[in-house]
Amino acid sequence: MSTNNDLKYTKKEFTSSEEIKWCPGCGDYAIFSAIQSAMTKIGKKREDIVCVSGIGCSSRLPYYLNTYGYHTIHGRAAAVASGIKTANPELSVWVMTGDGDSLSIGGNHFIHVLRRNVDMNIVLFNNQIYGLTKGQYSPTSVQGQVTKSSPYGSLDRPFSPAKLAFGASATFIARTLDTNTAHMQEVMLEAEEHRGTSFIEVYQNCVIFNDGCHSDYTDKKSRNDHSIMLKQGEAMIFGSELKKGIIFDKMRLKVVELGDKYSEKDCLVHDRENEGLASLLVAMDANPTMPKLYGVIYAVKDVIYNEQVSAQLAEVKALKGEGDFNKLLNSGEVWEVKV
């Protein structure tokens, strides 16, 4: 890996010449800004960074970021990125995607890139709506949501992206929010550090078609009462006065008030490497009575696809020697026709 901590880039050096065309007030601006800041800190040369996207508002981001960028087709960014990383493992590969792009039309590539654990960072902008096609319900829209294609309320049960990622054997699952630039940046740096596929869900507000869909747990005023900032080795307590906590009771997670009956000591302590705990944590966002989790929910080491590909090539070369085409042509049964 060509990591170099002496590289000094300004945020502006990650701005391309393309005119930005997101709606005023869109959460994508904040995410873009956090990504640009993160890029100045990851210690990679600008030319070694590749940003790949599918289709949708989120997927316009590579046009605006001054790195190598590929805006591909709907849902396929993870597949294109897998090819890029497998072909050249030296690159830092980032995928920008949305809830429609990766969980609907690109669902297959999403689960398989996680299964293979190709070393890349996937940033999924979850605004629970199709924005670019002008407001249809998405696979993360809440049941009953009234949209252009569901005037009487949507009937679909929504996906929980983190739970889906966990089920697909993800090795890094994190969540962040478009109203907290510092946190987004922190999570992105952790994602880049992680070797394997890093999956980041960003709660993103669509100001036009789904305004306020995440506001309870993303607005500064209300979010402390509805979310937990996970920290490795720290108890899961939350609330504006830190008076609430999560305990494990009868095989379930439960929110309790801290005071006479429960104290911080009774609360669960976050361990991002604990698979059993992760299985409970990733299911929390589907439960409206539970707070949302921010930070790195799960992070474990496992074999990495692109590294295995390179290793296998090296192994076979060591065993057989560098390929000799003339030798291949003359292998097996060969006969000579004489004049």
Binding site: Y70, A79, V80, G83, T86, A87, N88, N108, H109, H112
Partner: peptide
């Protein structure tokens, strides 16, 4: 690269070609 489907197969190749 034995892909998860035909679309991923060509898309991974496109990625490799870009690289």
């Amino acid at each position: 690269f034995q892909a998860e489907d035909e679309i991923a197969a060509i898309c991974a190749s496109i990625g490799a070609g870009l690289a």
